[in-house]
Simulated assay, not measured.
Amino acid sequence: MVTTSPWGLAIARSALPVWLTVRDRALKKENDALKTKLAAERARNKSLAKVAVELALELEQAKEELAQGATVARLPRSRTTTSPQLR
């Protein structure tokens, strides 16, 4: 069986040292795992970018509403300074 080296040379499989063949397989396996991990990270980054854009739009809308003098709904104040659960 003949394989091609990284330098484009044809090499008989039997001429390769065993350690090189083992290392090549290990590196290919590691490369595949890294590609999978990279794809997952890219997907996560894409999701985070979408969230950031949505939050930026909401912030811009809130700024526009405040600039137009829109009133902000206030929550009623409690009559005591502590909440009933803390008593």
Rank of each mutant, 00 (worst) to 15 (best):
M1P: 05
S47T: 14
Q68S: 13
V53C: 01
A70V: 06
A43Y: 05
S14C: 00
V2N: 12
K37V: 10
S14A: 13
Q61K: 15
E41H: 12
A15C: 05
T21P: 01
T80Y: 05
D32Y: 01
K50G: 03
K29F: 04
L75R: 15
K50T: 05
T80F: 00
T36M: 11
L66R: 15
G8N: 04
L66Y: 04
L57E: 15
L59T: 11
L9K: 15
K28S: 07
T81D: 13
L66A: 07
L59M: 10
N31L: 13
L86K: 08
A67P: 01
R42P: 01
M1Q: 12
A39D: 11
A56Y: 02
V2T: 06
A67S: 09
G8P: 07
L57C: 04
S47P: 00
A10Q: 13
T21N: 12
A39K: 07
S83M: 09
K35M: 14
N45S: 06
E54V: 08
V22Q: 12
G69R: 00
A39Y: 00
A62N: 09
W7S: 13
L34F: 03
K29L: 02
V53G: 02
R13G: 06
A40L: 10
N31D: 06
G8I: 04
N31F: 02
A67K: 14
R13F: 15
L75M: 13
E60C: 03
L59V: 08
T21Q: 13
E64F: 00
R87Q: 05
Q85E: 06
S78R: 12
L27C: 05
P76W: 02
R44V: 07
G69L: 02
A52V: 10
E58R: 01
W19Y: 09
A12Y: 10
A39M: 03
L34S: 04
P6R: 09
Q61P: 00
T4R: 14
A12T: 11
D32V: 06
S47C: 03
K37D: 13
A10N: 10
S47M: 06
G69H: 00
E58D: 04
M1A: 14
L9S: 11
T4L: 14
E30C: 01
D32C: 05
T81M: 04
E30G: 02
V2Y: 07
I11N: 01
T3P: 00
T3Q: 13
T82Y: 07
V18I: 15
L75N: 10
A10V: 05
V18Y: 09
E58T: 01
L20E: 10
E64S: 06
Q61S: 12
S78W: 10
L66S: 07
A12K: 14
A67N: 12
L9H: 12
L75G: 03
A67H: 02
E30D: 13
L27T: 02
W19K: 09
S83I: 07
A73T: 11
L86A: 13
A26E: 10
L59K: 15
A62Y: 01
L34P: 01
K35Q: 15
K63Q: 15
Q61W: 03
